[in-house]
Design a protein around this nucleic acid. Structure first.
Length: 945
RNA sequence: GGGCGCUUAACUCAGCGGUAGAGUGCCACCUUCACACGGUGGAAGUCGCAGGUUCGAAUCCUGCAGCGCCCACCA
């Protein structure tokens, strides 16, 4: 076993190798089960939230992927059929923007290219650059099934998108109509409510005087003053509204106004919606450019005049302002009004301004024809899926639970979803417009062929809709579409062409619903909510494997949702390019190793709190990796030493919980108990998504128990010199290796690289499986033997004795290297423990000889626990004042404990109401403190002044 | 305007009804044959403030202060 390992662990040397190995060996592929195999073993299915093809990996991705990878590796090692499914999102706007920017650099544009050529260009871009983020993911060792990688514009997924659209249309849940939508003048497309982000903005409220007309249309000399934040929209005004009971304006009811600058005459209308308190109490009405005005216009049957084009420049309806950008127009309009004496005032006004989520351009509400989903029926199912049913069960459970409220609150107040986008990159809406009768033809469900003639008039002059669907429409379908919906339905309606490509239902039957969704709250509504709505809607039609009707609990896209927080910088600032505080995970990984960064994220991933990413923590976990590495070096070194005298270490017991018998040495029985309770804890912690606690548990075990105590004690047993006890050494080495190998398996989901490397080294290149990831996770729930339990108590006793002796040595100035004799005064049972483990104490506390005495010799500095008095025999007993100080401090502490205990124990209420074990515990504690106190007081008294 | 969360050691965070915890940092000593990315010991907190419930409160309730997030069509 050539284990010539370098002293310091260098992750770069091994990580690339294993990352590449895991992909090359296709280790985490989960093939479609054979038809009779689909119900064997509970699957663990998890969908990767598909990053944009344009994306680069950031800390949020890495957190998300670390959490998913820990859970997937853990479940896989538990024997679950684990499937983690990766893919990318075509990301309509983002990708189109990216390619358009490229075109601009080349001095051309998509318009010049034309639609078909542009689409081809985007595909070429995708083929060239699209895989970057997944390559980064591969480097991080994510244990996904690469053989199932999807792209949201793949043929199968496109079929699903079309089918979903067609079905919703047939069900009357998709409609097309002219409404006010959020319009991004830069992207030149409609966007949904969710894609608008509001920013507080210091603007102005312009007060404009509209001249009142008499019945003949002449100015009366009176003015009605309106207030607006967007004066340029006045070009499209069709009325001014006042509250019907507003006394200021009662005399104007029924009158008309002249629209300044445009010379049109517009009516004064009365509407309850108008707030008398805001502005002047008179609102200009521009139905084409404001959602409120639009609604008001509908109520009063007002026309609507769109004065802007799709780039937010004033169009030919804007009279003299035509051609101007909206803000240029605003300036000019204000100036012109002022010149005409129609500007009554300008007030500072802070209000929320909507920006395009993608490009931050100010959104312009715009009257246009779009496609919408009537969302109410879908929302109802989506609400039922999350609310507890009559028996208190939830089909979908959120962690942290509070997100259920957020989700339900949103879902209960949901608006129809605008799904059309005026882009060229995306799933084109499967609807055809007839040039003759102007009606819409949508293909039949279960067909893939495009319609050839208008379904209404039979005309062949039909053209497909040019709009594409919102990207989230296709990603919302992923949980069903990745498992073959709708082709799995194999419905009679399928035409001959698709019938051939009909795919097996085994994937859907086995893996749907998925087990878990891990994602950030930022896409709770965008994606999580849409998946629930669409998943519940479409999966409910798919019969269960046994042919029965699918219930809601089996229709949901996932059974659990774990929402994680945001990764911020060390100062809790949101990372952003503009602030320049973005930490590139790949850079950090290069510096500290993937395992250390993963462990940092895991150890800080406490549900519900943001992560302030602190590099100091990563440094600490790099040290942890180094610790693991050196423990391995130590073990391998001893294996070699053993081999030199012909002792071969037995590897046959590896891969399970270590085995041993009652006569095993104390440290062995103890570490086994610790190992088992660690496995138990980790299992509970991962079950409840406590990545932080699980990481701390394994850290504490490995460093605190295994390295600090077990390894140090085991050194006593490992003697491979000529006249050593070979049997004892061999047994010790065997246990050491077993415990270590088991610890590696515990660690593996958190730190896959270093554990893989060392695990392979243990087997000298001949491992029983291709990867540690394919071994079994140490099982919790293993019943401890009595002698394991007892070992815990004995070991604790020795540990506290050791710690006291070490502290004592420091205080009296014993050199680190010196070994000294000690005196111990204790009772018979504690004495027995020490006698039986004399060698342990001697080694760990650097003691040359242990003398049991009835009374510690006068003049020796001593330390006391409830069980022990211990003193070191050393001539340099010094610093009496410091010793007095220390004793006094200790006395004060113990006195406080006794005082606290007495206060409670003398309280009749406490004795009556507190549970027995609390009372007993307190009594015992008081007793020990009192005993210690007596000793300490005695010591203090005998110290010279 | 609604809703939610946070405030614990210098820093980053656990704990959420029974005597205050971790990691990092800090101080002192130690290059002992796995590891100085190490070892050993140590200092460090009136658990944001004020009330209340309880035998007992960082932990439950109420109010206040500060910080942050989400949702909402008020010109």
């Amino acid at each position: 076993m050539p284990h010539d390992l370098p002293k310091a662990y260098d992750p770069t040397a091994i990580e690339d190798h294993w990352a590449e190995y895991w992909v090359r060996e296709n280790l985490f592929a989960q093939p479609t089960p054979k038809p009779d195999d689909r119900n064997q073993g509970e699957p663990f299915t998890i969908l990767l939230p598909p990053p944009n093809v344009t994306g680069r990996l950031h800390m949020g991705h890495m957190l998300n992927q670390t959490e998913m990878d820990i859970l997937t590796r853990w479940r896989r090692m538990q024997g679950r059929r684990a499937l983690w499914l990766p893919g990318t999102d075509h990301a309509g706007i983002a990708t189109q923007m990216m390619v358009e920017r490229q075109l601009a650099e080349e001095g051309t544009s998509r318009q010049q290219l034309g639609r078909a050529a542009f689409e081809a260009r985007v595909w070429a871009w995708k083929r060239h650059y699209g895989g970057a983020i997944l390559d980064q993911m591969k480097r991080l060792g994510a244990s996904v099934d690469w053989s199932r990688e999807y792209f949201t514009m793949d043929e199968n997924l496109s079929v699903a998108v079309r089918e979903a659209f067609v079905r919703l249309y047939e069900q009357g849940l998709i409609y097309r109509g002219a409404y006010i939508v959020n319009w991004c003048p830069r992207c030149q497309t409609a966007i949904s409510d969710l894609e608008v982000v509001y920013d507080e903005h210091k603007g102005h409220l312009w007060e404009i005087r509209y001249p009142v007309h008499d019945d003949a249309g002449r100015e009366t000399g009176e003015f009605l003053t309106v207030a607006t934040t967007r004066p340029e929209t006045m070009l499209g005004d069709v009325a001014v509204a006042v509250h019907p009971e507003d006394e200021r304006y009662l005399h104007l009811h029924g009158k008309k106004l002249g629209l300044p600058l445009m010379g049109r005459e517009i009516p004064i209308v009365l509407d309850d919606w108008v707030s008398r308190a805001f502005g002047t109490g008179a609102v200009k009405v521009t139905p084409a450019h404001d959602p409120n005005d639009f609604a008001l216009g509908e109520r009063h049957h007002l026309p609507s005049i769109n004065v802007m084009d799709e780039t937010a420049h004033i169009n030919d309806k804007g009279g003299p302002y035509a051609g101007l950008d909206r803000y240029v127009a605003r300036k000019k309009i204000v100036a012109d009004l002022e010149e005409q004496g129609l500007l009554a005032g300008i007030k500072d006004h802070t209000h929320n301004v909507g920006h395009c989520d993608r490009c931050k351009t100010v959104v312009e509400p715009r009257f246009s024809t779009q496609w919408f989903i009537k969302i109410q029926p879908l929302a109802e199912k989506a609400i039922a899926a999350v609310k507890p049913d009559a028996t208190g069960n939830k089909a979908i459970r959120f962690t942290p639970e509070m997100y259920e409220k957020t989700y339900l609150n949103w879902m209960e107040n949901i608006h129809d979803w605008c799904i059309s986008r005026q882009l060229w990159w995306g799933h084109r809406i499967p609807a055809w417009h007839c040039a003759i009768c102007h009606k819409i033809t949508v293909p039949r469900p279960n067909t893939q062929e495009d319609p050839k003639a208008c379904a209404h008039c039979g005309s062949a002059e039909i053209k497909q809709e040019t709009d594409v669907l919102d990207t989230w429409f296709s990603s919302g379908l992923l949980p069903v579409s990745v498992f073959g919906w709708p082709k799995i339905l194999g419905a009679p309606g399928l035409d001959s062409e698709t019938r051939e490509s009909k795919i097996d239902r085994a994937d859907f039957d086995t893996f749907y619903p998925t087990s878990l969704l891990v994602t950030g709250f930022d896409i709770l509504f965008f994606w999580v909510a849409r998946m629930i709505m669409l998943g519940c809607w479409f999966a409910s039609d798919v019969p269960m494997p046994d042919g029965s009707q699918r219930e809601l609990k089996d229709s949901v896209p996932f059974k659990e949702v774990y929402i994680h927080a945001l990764v911020r910088d060390a100062n809790r600032e949101k990372m952003s390019k503009t602030k320049g505080n973005v930490i590139d995970p790949i850079e950090i990984v290069k510096q500290y190793g993937t395992d250390a960064v993963r462990f940092t994220l895991a150890s800080m991933a406490s549900p519900g709190t943001d992560i302030a990413f602190n590099i100091a923590r990563t440094e600490g976990y790099r040290a942890f990796a180094n610790k693991i590495w050196n423990a391995a070096r130590f073990i391998f070194m001893n294996i070699e030493r053993a081999a030199e005298i012909g002792i071969a270490v037995d590897r046959s017991a590896l891969g399970a919980m270590p085995t041993m018998t009652e006569d095993a040495p104390l440290e062995a029985r103890w570490i086994l108990a610790e190992l088992q309770s660690t496995a138990q804890l980790i299992s509970e912690e991962l079950q409840s998504y406590r990545f932080d606690e699980a990481a701390n548990t394994i850290y504490r075990f490995f460093w605190g128990s295994f390295c600090d105590w077990f390894l140090e004690i085991v050194k006593l047993r490992l003697d491979f010199s000529e006249n050593a006890d070979k049997a004892e050494s061999k047994a010790a080495l065997s246990t050491l290796l077993q415990v270590f190998e088991c610890a590696l398996r515990l660690l593996s989901p958190f730190m896959p690289f270093i554990t893989e490397e060392i695990w392979h080294a243990i087997y000298d290149g001949n491992p029983p499986t291709k990867s540690i990831a394919l071994t079994h996770y140490p099982q919790p729930g293993y019943a401890l033997e009595v002698w394991n339990q007892y070992a815990l108590v004995e070991m604790q006793s020795l540990q506290s004795l050791t710690v006291e002796i070490r502290a004592l040595r420091k205080e009296i100035g014993v050199e680190e290297k010196a070994v000294v004799p000690i005196e111990i005064r204790t009772d018979a049972s504690s004495r027995k423990i020490v006698e039986q483990n004399r060698d342990i104490v001697e080694r760990l506390a650097r003691v040359s000889e242990i003398r049991f005495v009835d009374q510690i010799a006068a003049g020796l500095a001593k330390h006391s626990t409830a069980a022990f008095d211990v003193a070191a025999i050393y001539q340099r007993t010094i610093d009496v004042p410091a010793e007095r100080e220390r004793k006094k401090k200790e006395i004060a502490k113990q006195e406080q404990i006794v005082l606290n205990a007495d206060r409670q124990l003398n309280n009749p209420g406490f004795l009556v109401k507190a549970p027995a074990h609390i009372v007993e515990g307190l009594k015992k504690q008081r007793e020990e403190a009192q005993r210690l106190l007596d000793k300490l007081r005695g010591d203090l008294g005998s110290l010279p002044e």
